[in-house]
Design a protein around this nucleic acid. Sequence first.
DNA 1: TAGTGACGGTTAATCGATTAAACAACGAGG
DNA 2: CCTCGTTGTTTAATCGATTAACCGTCACTA
Lengths: 343, 343
Amino acid sequence: MVVRLRDVAAAAGVSDATVSLALAGNPRISTATSARVIAAANQLGYRPNSAARALRTESTKSLGLIVSDVANPFFAELAGTIERQAAHEGYSLILCNSDEDVARQDDYLLNLLAGSQVDGVLLVPTASTTPGLRALAASGAKIVLLDRPITVSGTGAVAESLRTVPIVSSDPRQALADAAELLARLGHRRVGVVAPPLATPLGRDRRGQIRDALVSAGFRSRDIVVEEGDFRQESGYRAAEALLASGNPTVIIAADGPMGVGALKALRAHGIRVPHDMSVICFDDAPWFDLFDPPLSAIAQPIEELARAAIAAVLAQREGNPVLAAHPPCTFISRSSCGVPAG
Amino acid sequence: MVVRLRDVAAAAGVSDATVSLALAGNPRISTATSARVIAAANQLGYRPNSAARALRTESTKSLGLIVSDVANPFFAELAGTIERQAAHEGYSLILCNSDEDVARQDDYLLNLLAGSQVDGVLLVPTASTTPGLRALAASGAKIVLLDRPITVSGTGAVAESLRTVPIVSSDPRQALADAAELLARLGHRRVGVVAPPLATPLGRDRRGQIRDALVSAGFRSRDIVVEEGDFRQESGYRAAEALLASGNPTVIIAADGPMGVGALKALRAHGIRVPHDMSVICFDDAPWFDLFDPPLSAIAQPIEELARAAIAAVLAQREGNPVLAAHPPCTFISRSSCGVPAG
DNA sequence: TAGTGACGGTTAATCGATTAAACAACGAGG
DNA sequence: CCTCGTTGTTTAATCGATTAACCGTCACTA
C-alpha cells in the first residue's frame, strides 16, 4: 500500500542507491536513468519515509515553535507568519502550546528537541531558566528565544551556553516614547500599568521600559501605578479593577492584547467611559482594534520582522555563524482611546 | 553529546534490548534491573530518538493539523484547543497553514502524511477534492475533515474511500433559526449575505442553511442577496460595499469573523451606522466582540466540542472503529448590532 | 597494448530503537 | 539424575533511506 524506495527501484529496474541519487539530482546518474526513475516514482506515487530519512541524515527539516498561548491573536499571527517563512525555507513547523505552564513547556522541549524530532526550536519562554532549557542548552541544541528574554544566573558551561542563546524580540522604546509624549501632551499625570508578572524577566523589562518612557516625558515615578497580570484576559480585568480601586490613574497601559481586552471589559462593567474618564493603550495590535468603542490605541509589534529574524537565527545556528539578537522596533498607533483627562 | 540507547545500556551494564524493554515497563525485566536502567537513563538524560522509533514502530505519536488561516481567531483558538486535546492523548501537533491555497495544502498533505511524519491529519479543506486528498484516501491514510465538507464526485474505490472520510463541523441550523427569528421580529425584510465561495461545498451549504433559516422565519427568497467573499477581511469589505451598492439590505450576515470585521469596516467607511442603518451578524465569536461599536452579534461555534470530536475521530480510525461525523450545534449570541431597521 | 580516467552504476554499512526468537540459569517434579 | 518450566536477559533481524567505497566499461593516450 505504501510505496518504498525499493519499489521504485524495482519498477525502474535499478538499484536502491540509484533511485536515491537520481531523486536527489545527483549528476553521477545519467539523464536517461534519472528520467526513468523519476517517471517510476511519480507513477507509483513514491513519498520518501521521513523517519528513515531523518534517522540517516539527522535532520527532519522541521522546526518547533512553542508559544505560550496560540489563542492570543498576536501569537496566532506570529505563528502563521513564522510558518510561512519556514515553509519558504523548506521547513515545516511543529506548533506547541505551553499555556504559560512550565511543565508543559519543558515536556515539549525535551520530547521534541532532545528526541531529534526537530532541527531547531523557537521558544516563547514561560518562565526564566527552566530545567528543560538548561538541559537542552547543555546538549548544544539549536534554540532561539522569541518575544521574551530570560535571565541566566550563575557561571559554568551551561550558564554560559544559555547566555549565548539568540533572542528575538521587539524593541518598544521608540513607540513607548511616542505614547508617553502624547499622554503628557494631553495632560495626563497618573498612569496605571497592567504589567506582566514581576517573576518573569519580561515583567521587569517592560516595567522598566514603560517607566523610562514616562519619566522621560515628564511623569513622576510615584505617579506610575503597577498592577500585575498573567498575560490573560481575566487578569487584565482584575488588574484594571485594582487600579480603579487604588491608583486613580487617568490612563491604563496594558502589556498585551488579552489583558487590554480584559481591562476594557472591566472599565465598561464599572461604567468608566473611554477616553473621557480613562485613556487606554495596549501592547499588540489587531485588525479589529479600530472597531472597538472607542478605537484602541496600540503599540504594534513588527510581526513580519520578528518572524524573519527568528527563522534566520535558527538557520544561522545550523550553519555555525550565530546571530545573537534582533530587536525590530514597535510602532505606536494612536487611536481615539487616548484623550484629554476629565476633571 | 547526544545519549543513545546504547549508552544507557553500557552504563547500566545490560544489553540494548533490556534497556528498551525496561523503559517500556515490560514485566519480563526484573525490578532490580529495571531500576538500574531507569536510574542510568535519568542520570544520562536519555531521550529516545523519535526518528528511529518512528521508523521501527510506524507511529510518530503526532498529528497534523492543516488550517486555512491561523491568523483567523477561530482557527487559532481551535488549533490551541485541539493541541491541548492531542497532548492529553499523548500526541503532539504539527500545525500547517495552507493560506487557502490548494497547492500548499496538497504539499503538506503529501509530505506530512504520505511521508509518515504523522499518524493522522485533521484538515480544513481549502477546495473540494484535490489531487493530494485523492491520493491519500487511496492509500488509506487517517484523515478527518474539519469545519468544511467536500463533495466527492464519481464512483470507484478512491471516491468511495473519500466518501467515508469522517467530517467534524458545527451545525449552525438552530442558531441561524434563532437569528432569523430575531431579524423577522425586528421587522427586517431584506438580508445581505457575505458568503463563502460558491465553488466550495461550504459555500453551497452555508447559503442553503442561511436561506432555509430565513425562509422559515418568513423572509422571501428574492429578498436574500448574496455577495461572495473568500474568507478574508478584505473580501468582506468589498462584499459589504457591493451589497450597499446593489442590494439595499437592512442586515448583513457574514460567514466568518474576518469577513465580518471587513464588512464592519466598510460600513464605517461609508458612514453607515450599526445597528441604526444596518444590522450585522457574524459567524464565529471572539472574546472582544462585545467591545465593538456596537457589540457584534455572533453565531458562535462550539470549539471545545469540535476539537474533542476531531481528535476522537482520528484516534478512532487508528483503532478501526471509525466515527463518520460529528456536528455539535452553534449558539446564537445576540448583541446590540441587531436592531430595528430604519425607515 | 597496457595504462589511466571518466562515467554510471551497485554493494554494503549505517542511523537508533524495537521485538520475536533464542538462550542461560535455576528449581521442581518424576 | 534427567527433563521440563519459568524467569530474566541477550542475540539478531528489521524498519527505509542515504552515501562512502567500490567495480565494470569504454575511450583515449603513450
